[in-house]
């Protein structure tokens, strides 16, 4: 039943597949992000209230979505690694952390830049902003924990547990705007039914979102390969792969 996991979980197999997939994701990401940025900045109409200021949504929302998406991926990979003792899954989790941290930072920073003219402040301690900041520290904590433990296997297990426990923060971030009074407004596109956004604006947001996803895939595959190289020291398959490329 789990043969497909085991096949994908074999480092040489994964290394070859990801090396082949990376350029595809990279080009798709480049095309989609350029198109999304152009569309968001110049094609989409300005908002009736926020005028051109609303265009920040095209970088803020994809970064924020990705910050959560990457965390869930990281925690899932960590859980798979912990339960089935698959080294490659731990490598994926470890590769997720720096990418996730960078997008969390981006979500916070672009949000702050957007908040200044619209809300009238750079930062408030409301539930949404605070829980997103906690996410950034979870990523930092995860990376610090890995760096602090020399033994690979022990670092994998300890950090995996931290990643899994931290996943509690994900629903808190997502639903903070509904559970509590916050300054941050509720979600525009993630709720069921019709998004509260004009179609001409929404298209470019979806394009940008797809572009960011492809970007994450490309960076993740590259980082996992680097991780696999380190962990497969002294194994036979490395010789063919490394010298062949």
């Amino acid at each position: 039943m789990w043969t497909w996991i085991h096949k994908l979980g074999s480092p040489p197999h994964f290394y070859r597949i990801s090396a082949r997939l990376t350029p595809w994701f990279s080009w798709a990401a480049l095309l989609l992000i350029v198109a999304g940025a152009y569309g968001g900045l110049y094609v989409a109409p300005a908002d009736y209230q926020q005028l051109d200021g609303f265009r920040i949504i095209y970088v803020h929302v994809p970064s924020a979505s990705l910050s959560l998406f990457i965390y869930v991926n990281m925690a899932l990979a960590a859980a798979v690694g912990l339960i089935w003792r698959i080294k490659l899954a731990h490598a994926v989790a470890a590769a997720c952390a720096p990418i996730g941290a960078s997008f969390t930072f981006l979500a916070l920073a672009t949000g702050s830049i957007w908040a200044k003219p619209m809300w009238g402040t750079w930062w408030v301690w409301d539930a949404r902003l605070t829980s997103e900041l906690v996410l950034l520290f979870l990523y930092f904590g995860y990376m610090a924990l890995r760096a602090a433990i020399d033994d690979d296997t022990r670092a994998d297990r300890a950090s995996a547990l931290l990643a899994i426990i931290g996943v509690i923060n994900v629903p808190i971030i997502k639903y903070s705007v509904e559970w509590w009074n916050t300054l941050h407004q509720p979600a525009t596109i993630s709720k069921m039914g019709k998004p509260s956004m004009d179609f001409d604006m929404l298209v470019w947001l979806l394009v940008m979102l797809a572009g960011f996803m492809c970007f994450f895939a490309a960076i993740l595959l590259t980082r996992v390969r680097a991780e696999v190289l380190l962990r497969s020291r002294g194994q036979k398959w490395l010789r063919n792969t490394v010298e062949g490329s």
């Binding site: 109409p45 300005a46 908002d47 009736y48 209230q49 926020q50 609303f54 949504i57 619209m118 809300w119 009238g120 402040t121 408030v124 300054l183 407004q185 509720p186 979600a187 525009t188 509260s196 956004m197 004009d198 001409d200 604006m201």
Partner: peptide, 18 residues
């Protein structure tokens, strides 16, 4: 001593709002 604006989750062009 501090006033912040809270906007909603709706985005639309001026014509639509009109």
């Amino acid at each position: 001593d501090e006033v912040l604006a809270k906007h909603d989750e709706n985005y639309m062009p001026p014509e639509v709002e009109e």
